[in-house]
Write a protein that binds this DNA or RNA. Sequence first.
DNA 1: CTGTTAAGCGTACATCATACGCTTACTATC
DNA 2: GATAGTAAGCGTATGATGTACGCTTAACAG
Lengths: 207, 207
Amino acid sequence: MARPKSLTHDAIAAAALAVCDRDGLAALSMRAVAAELGVATMSLYRYVADRGELERRIVDRVLGAVDLSVPAVAPWHERVARLADRIRDAVGAHPETVPLLMTHRHASRGLMRCAEAMLEALDEGGFAGARRVVALRAIVSYVNGALQAQHVAPLAGAGTDALAALSTGEFPLLAETARHARAVTAEAEFRGGLEALLRGLATAPGR
Amino acid sequence: MARPKSLTHDAIAAAALAVCDRDGLAALSMRAVAAELGVATMSLYRYVADRGELERRIVDRVLGAVDLSVPAVAPWHERVARLADRIRDAVGAHPETVPLLMTHRHASRGLMRCAEAMLEALDEGGFAGARRVVALRAIVSYVNGALQAQHVAPLAGAGTDALAALSTGEFPLLAETARHARAVTAEAEFRGGLEALLRGLATAPGR
DNA sequence: CTGTTAAGCGTACATCATACGCTTACTATC
DNA sequence: GATAGTAAGCGTATGATGTACGCTTAACAG
């Protein structure tokens, strides 16, 4: 016995993501999202409590789009790597949202989906108890850090050039290392670190 | 032949950091920092180009305070772990700045100091060329991700409790894993993941 | 047709970063 | 010591932001 809603949470998240993709994260505002939907600014507040919730819904949409259908038959570390690649793909499709992912990932059902899939692989790999906790957190930490590094300071970016340029100086090793950075693709970087982590997780120390 | 400056970049960064520490990152504003220093808001713009530069100086101050004096005689992986612990200490002293670290770390001389120190250890460990690039980036990614995870979603926090509470449901492994999280201290988590990564980096795959 | 209810939204406000240009304090020169 | 030149300091103004508050309106139940 009331006026029906004209928007959905899904449409709002899609509109917000569209604004980010098109105009950048800095352009994300309640006004911009409302305009994108063709409604007044304050109408959004019938659907989200505040800007924070809007951001959380963006994150959830990006992470919810991760394709988790990896073959369950592969060895566990390969499954985890495959899942991480899928996350990388999903985030790569919306690079502007990376800072939001960093801030809001914890309150996201989308991340929980990914975590559960990771845990299935880890479980199969024999991880249990505290060891599984550490493994999951390490993987999530690495993936998050790597995604952010790739977006905010890509190896093939201006920062690397700047480092390589200060050939002599107070950071000799850093400069020399930067000069080798061009030989490393973003994918090799991501995979290399991840696989190292997984190899290390496989070889427990005190057992 | 002009009026001398009454502030220094250092004093500004210190004041900004003080605001963050005392009132939280959300309270960080040009006005708040100016008030902290006892000057007018616009006076700050004689020293920093914009708010972004202010934030970068905060990051630089936090990272510049990292104690890099670790014994050079220890095995390389232990040196790296020690350095990472020092970074963790420095960031832990200013937890409110974590989101800034994530956004601005790349343009920070403070991070370059840390990176150079890490590279010294890696060099000693025989890392060179592209392999050294991958190793450094992986370590930096992990440390960043782990620090952020620790502050935005600590294992000993409400998020873990919430996960553990949804005992039955769509995320059974996640819930069960959360229930084991209390047995893992923040330090064990950080160390566990880092040492796994370093172990994995030590064992190169295709060689 | 009409009344009830929640959706939609116009207005207002506090706060933010910051552009612009005036005022002021210091110092170098005489 | 007086004075002029210069950059520091800052007052004011502008446009953007998130969002509180309460009015308007559309849709459905009766």
